[in-house]
Computed example of a mutant assay.
Amino acid sequence: MSLAAAPTEIPSLEEAYEACRQETAEWAKTFYLGTLLMPPAKRRAIWAIYVWCRRTDELMDSPEAMTRPEAELAERLDVWEQRTRDLFEGTVRDGLDRVMADTIERYPQPIEPYLDMIEGMRMDLTTHRYATFEQLKLYCYRVAGTVGLMTQEVMGIDPAYTSAPWSHPPDTSEAAVALGIANQLTNILRDVGEDRGRGRIYLPQEDLERFGYSEDELMAGTLNDSWRELMRFQLKRARDWFARSEAGVRWLAPDARWPVWASLRLYRGILDVIEELDYDVFNHRAYVPTSGKFLDLPRSFVIAQAR
């Protein structure tokens, strides 16, 4: 089932949400598993946001996009930005627009994170190296931290923090962004080998220099002590960002805490797998096996019950 359709063939809301579910299940298996722990309305909204983000990413990173000239990709991003602005003004052109409009109505949210993500895609047009972590952090915020902001209204806040007349709702934005950055740093470490094939190195240049590991060695997939020390440093940084995000999970609505904890722990588990592979992300793809995912769900449930 395709989300794209001519204006006279826009699928029903149920059909469009089902298409989002199928796409999420196919392309984001660990993430999808976490969404199934949510109540139906919330999981559908998360599927819609995921597919919107995937469509945005495909403008730059699909196999077809990689064959296109930079000017054409830039134009695509401009068109997508205008379409996003139109969506937030109420214009519905296809099934994805329909579910996104429904999600925005149910869970009101600002347009800025969506526009920031598009800016992250623009960074990929011209930036293939990052001199410092501060520069990389901006990229990680735009392409992944924004997802936390897009979804925080869907997750909701535990009424225990908002029910008293004197209570002030906690701000989950910082933790939401931290989780997105942690996930993106994990993606970068997992995909070092794949990214080098596209001429991209996301590991900060200052870190390569610090550990005495050259760009030529990275492109050649050289495994040595310098590489392992570099990767240990990168994994610690990613885990630190996961730790920052944990502080905000306790504020979430009870029906969101378990799936968020499950997703956080399962994604962080990729870092453990990288260690088990002796940091060889050039010849192996790190992933948490299905058995490990299901074994961790009860642990995540217990953690989610504590505030």
Rank of each mutant, 00 (worst) to 15 (best):
M1R: 15
S2E: 15
S2W: 07
A5H: 09
T8W: 12
S12R: 11
E14T: 13
E15L: 06
Y17T: 12
T24I: 09
T30S: 15
F31E: 08
G34T: 08
L37Y: 05
L37C: 08
P40T: 06
W52P: 07
R54Q: 06
R54F: 10
T56Q: 13
E58N: 13
P63V: 11
E64P: 00
D78V: 06
V79M: 12
W80C: 10
Q82K: 14
R83S: 12
F88G: 07
F88T: 01
G90S: 05
R93C: 08
D94A: 06
D97C: 04
R98C: 04
M100T: 07
E105L: 10
E119T: 09
M121A: 11
L125K: 00
L125I: 10
T126P: 02
T126V: 07
E134Q: 04
E134W: 00
R142C: 06
T146R: 01
L149D: 05
V154F: 08
M155D: 00
S163Q: 15
H168A: 11
P170T: 09
G180T: 07
I181V: 14
I181Q: 07
A182C: 02
N183A: 13
N187V: 03
V192F: 08
G193A: 04
G199W: 03
R200H: 05
Q205Y: 00
E206D: 09
E206K: 01
E209M: 02
F211T: 03
L218D: 04
N224G: 03
R228A: 02
L230M: 07
M231D: 01
R232G: 00
R237W: 01
R239H: 06
A243C: 02
R244I: 05
R244N: 12
S245F: 03
G248V: 09
A253R: 09
P259K: 08
R265K: 09
L266P: 02
Y267I: 05
V273D: 06
Y287H: 14
K293V: 05
K293S: 03
F294C: 04
F301H: 11
F301T: 06
Q305R: 15
